[in-house]
């Protein structure tokens, strides 16, 4: 029914060029758009709105109290610290990996590319367990570490390691795609013109990839702040000491302190919103510069 109707209708209503771009017949297009919007609303917008509604249900002062309480502040500090270590580490790694994969041919390149994707494929809980097996008291390096009084598991270093692991791929993946699309010609031109390796990187490569880099860093940052599974396994949930923001939210929730839990959770939602805006801006800036 619908097909016959739209086939008759399409040539008359839409100019040929437009219909080729729009593709789907108009009724189907409306249905698809409506379905997508309904789905988005139900699964994304409503839950996010509920987080804020729940967080603010006892008023602004309760909200402020929940996020300025000492344990919450300690969790925020820890999350920021971990992010400040994990994200720069992975930025440096991502730049190095992106550079060598996109600009050079070498043996084992495909193995490296696959390994970079590994942290995305492994469940965060498994990632956490790996570190427990490696650094925990019963683990491979456990006895040596405890002999030297170094605490990794149930301490900050473990959280940093787990966070670095789960955010490992973001910058590298983003940059590899970006750099491969750009090719090597401009770098070759710079080298022939007499630029050295560092000059080529600073003057040509970095300015060209900066938007891709920024996007990758933004994603890595969001993941580092929001990571739950891997961190949960290695942190030991010591209140005020090894609880990050997501872990603190869980603790509060399990203690039936719902509005406090949602108040702290709303901070993570804000991070997500900032990330989305940043992503949009970066994409827009990159498009503007391309012109």
């Amino acid at each position: 029914m619908t097909t016959t109707q739209t086939q008759v209708e399409r040539p008359a209503r839409v100019p040929a060029r437009d219909s080729a771009r729009a593709g789907a017949p108009s009724l189907g297009r409306w249905l698809l758009t409506a379905a997508a919007l309904a789905f988005l609303g139900l699964f994304l917008f409503v839950p996010l709105a509920l987080v804020f509604a729940k967080a603010l249900e006892k008023g602004l002062s309760a909200y402020a109290a929940a996020i300025t309480e000492p344990d919450a502040l300690s969790a925020i500090r820890l999350t920021l610290l971990v992010t400040l270590i994990a994200v720069p580490l992975n930025t440096v790694f991502g730049l190095a990996a992106g550079w060598c994969i996109a600009k050079f041919e070498f043996r084992g390149k495909s193995v490296l590319t696959t390994l970079i994707d590994l942290p995305l494929a492994v469940s965060p809980v498994v990632a956490g367990l790996v570190f427990v097996l490696l650094f925990g008291s019963g683990g491979a390096l456990g006895p040596w570490l405890s002999a030297h009084e170094v605490n990794v598991i149930f301490a900050v270093p473990g959280i940093v390691l787990a966070t670095t692991f789960v955010t490992f791929s973001y910058v590298a993946r983003e940059l590899i795609a970006f750099m491969q699309a750009q090719g090597r010609e401009e770098e070759a031109a710079a080298v022939v013109l007499g630029a050295g390796g560092v000059q080529t990187f600073l003057r040509i490569t970095l300015p060209r990839i900066k938007w891709g880099l920024l996007y990758g860093v933004t994603l890595a940052n969001a993941r580092a702040m929001g990571e739950f599974g891997a961190v949960s396994v290695v942190s030991g949930h010591i209140r005020g000491r090894t609880n990050t923001v997501p872990l603190h939210v869980e603790v509060l929730y399990n203690e039936y302190a719902f509005s406090a839990a949602f108040a702290v959770a709303s901070l993570l939602v804000l991070v997500a919103l900032v990330t989305l805006v940043a992503k949009k801006t970066v994409a827009w800036r990159a498009r503007v510069e391309k012109r």
């Binding site: 070759a188 031109a189 710079a190 022939v192 013109l193 003057r203 040509i204």
Partner: peptide
């Protein structure tokens, strides 16, 4: 050596002036 590429390989993030000046700057 001066090399001119088929697809120009100009530095798109730099002005015309800075493109021409690149070899002298480095």
């Amino acid at each position: 050596i001066g090399l001119v590429f088929q697809h120009y390989a100009l530095f798109n993030h730099l002005s015309v002036f800075e493109n021409v000046a690149f070899g002298l700057r480095v």
